[in-house]
Simulated scan of single mutants.
Amino acid sequence: MPDAGSVQRWATGDPASDEVLRVWYVAVTRARRLAAIALLEEETDALARLLTERQVPVRVV
């Protein structure tokens, strides 16, 4: 699971200079049909908003 605060890091970080973000970027952009991300429940809404703003379909279960 990502560390607490990861959603903010994903939203504002730079994968070119942050190795953890680079690994996440590669993993998620290689997904062809589905990328499932497990994270702390209190960060779910923030990630859903971030992805929705970028026109990425989101389903929270």
Rank of each mutant, 00 (worst) to 15 (best):
T44M: 15
A27W: 04
L21K: 10
A36V: 15
A31I: 15
I37D: 03
L39N: 06
R33L: 12
D3Y: 09
A36R: 09
D14M: 02
A11Y: 12
A31N: 13
V26C: 13
D3M: 13
E19Y: 08
A27F: 11
L40E: 09
E41S: 15
G5A: 02
A35R: 01
P15L: 04
G5P: 03
R30I: 11
E42P: 01
D3A: 14
A27Q: 12
A4S: 08
A35G: 09
R33M: 04
A35C: 05
V20G: 00
E19S: 13
V20Q: 05
Q8D: 08
V7E: 00
S6T: 07
G13F: 05
R33G: 03
A35W: 01
W10F: 07
E41P: 09
A38S: 06
D14G: 10
A4N: 07
I37E: 09
T44S: 14
E43G: 00
R33S: 07
P15A: 12
V20L: 04
A27C: 14
R33P: 01
R9H: 08
E42H: 02
L40D: 09
E41D: 15
A11I: 15
T29L: 14
A4H: 11
S17T: 15
R33A: 08
D3L: 14
R33E: 03
S6M: 12
L34M: 02
A35S: 06
R32H: 13
S17N: 15
T12L: 12
L40S: 11
V20M: 06
A11W: 12
V28C: 13
R22Y: 06
R30Y: 07
R9P: 02
T29E: 01
V20K: 04
A36Y: 13
G13S: 02
T44H: 10
R22I: 04
L21M: 07
Y25F: 11
R30V: 13
A36H: 12
L21Q: 09
R30N: 07
V7F: 03
P15E: 12
W24S: 05
T29D: 09
V23H: 02
D3P: 09
V26N: 07
E43M: 06
A16V: 11
